[in-house]
Computed example of a mutant assay.
Amino acid sequence: MKKISTPYLLLLPGFAFLFTFFVFPILSLAQVSTATPISGGDVGEFEQTLRFRNYLEAFLESREHFGRSLVYALLATFIALMISYPLAYALAFKSGKYKNVLLVLVVAPFFTSFLLRTVAWKQILGEEGFVVPPLRTLGLISESTTLTSTAGAVIIGMAYNFLPFMTLPLYASIDRIDPRTLEASGDLYANGFTTFRKVTLPLSMPGVVAGTLLTFIPAAGDYVNAELLGGPNNTMIGNVIQSRFLIPDYPTTSALSFMLMASILIIVIVYIRKAGTDEVV
Results as ranks from 00 to 15, higher is better:
175 D>R: 13
120 A>H: 13
238 G>T: 08
170 L>I: 00
159 A>H: 06
207 G>V: 03
244 R>Q: 15
15 F>E: 00
250 Y>E: 04
121 W>T: 00
137 T>F: 11
231 G>W: 06
65 H>P: 02
70 L>W: 08
179 P>F: 03
194 T>E: 12
201 L>F: 15
126 G>P: 14
204 S>D: 04
260 L>M: 11
179 P>W: 00
87 L>P: 01
157 G>R: 04
60 L>A: 02
207 G>M: 00
30 A>E: 07
245 F>S: 14
212 T>F: 01
165 F>C: 05
29 L>R: 00
172 A>F: 09
149 S>P: 03
66 F>N: 13
29 L>H: 05
144 S>V: 04
276 G>N: 11
94 K>T: 13
232 P>T: 00
13 P>D: 12
204 S>P: 09
74 L>S: 15
153 A>S: 13
271 Y>W: 14
52 F>G: 01
25 P>H: 04
214 L>A: 10
253 T>W: 09
152 G>P: 08
242 Q>V: 03
26 I>G: 00
281 V>F: 04
80 A>T: 10
166 M>Y: 07
131 V>C: 03
174 I>T: 07
223 Y>R: 00
57 E>C: 06
138 L>C: 02
202 P>D: 10
220 A>Q: 06
205 M>G: 06
227 E>K: 13
78 F>I: 15
199 V>E: 04
127 E>A: 09
58 A>P: 14
46 F>D: 04
275 A>W: 06
68 R>M: 05
122 K>D: 02
124 I>T: 08
56 L>N: 08
173 S>F: 08
45 E>W: 12
271 Y>E: 12
108 A>D: 09
188 L>A: 11
85 Y>S: 01
26 I>T: 07
40 G>M: 07
111 F>H: 02
